[in-house]
């Protein structure tokens, strides 16, 4: 298990969120998530400018094993997507915390409140075994 960055927050479904300087929120999946999924072969990203809603699917990641939905943890509008993933989905495996980010969302209501910090997320991973 690699170190869990302290500069962001986490959902209990293994997504991470990081607030950027321009107020947008960057979303990705954790190292644990990419490891459980296996090698990614395809990432389906939303259109820039489209709306995302909390709890709804915003990205589909397909690994060699299965297709998995990534659910948006917040309401907002898609400000940017990681276009590099179109040709290099493996960036999510190789660099889940940085180069493998999925999308940036301009939040409708700021950061959601029910997120975990790095320590709480680490504790959840521990309890999941």
């Amino acid at each position: 298990m690699s170190d869990i960055p302290k500069d962001r927050q986490y959902t209990d479904t293994h997504e991470w969120l990081r607030e950027l300087d321009d107020g947008s929120i960057e979303l990705g999946i954790t190292d644990h998530a990419q490891e459980s999924l296996g090698d990614l072969v395809f990432v389906e990203l939303p259109e820039v400018g489209s709306e995302v809603a909390s709890g709804e699917e915003c990205v589909v990641v397909e690994s060699t094993k299965a297709a998995s939905d990534v659910f948006s943890p917040l309401d907002g509008e898609v400000a940017a997507v990681n276009e590099a993933l179109e040709d290099q989905p493996e960036l999510v495996n190789q660099s889940p915390w940085e180069e493998g980010w999925l999308l940036r969302i301009r939040p409708a209501n700021g950061m959601p409140e029910d997120l975990m910090d790095a320590d709480a997320y680490a504790a959840q991973l521990e309890s999941e075994g």
Binding site: G38, D39, V41, T64, E90, N93
Partner: peptide, 8 residues
């Protein structure tokens, strides 16, 4: 073993 790291 399913993989030893990367199945690709």
């Amino acid at each position: 073993p399913l993989t030893y790291g990367s199945e690709l």
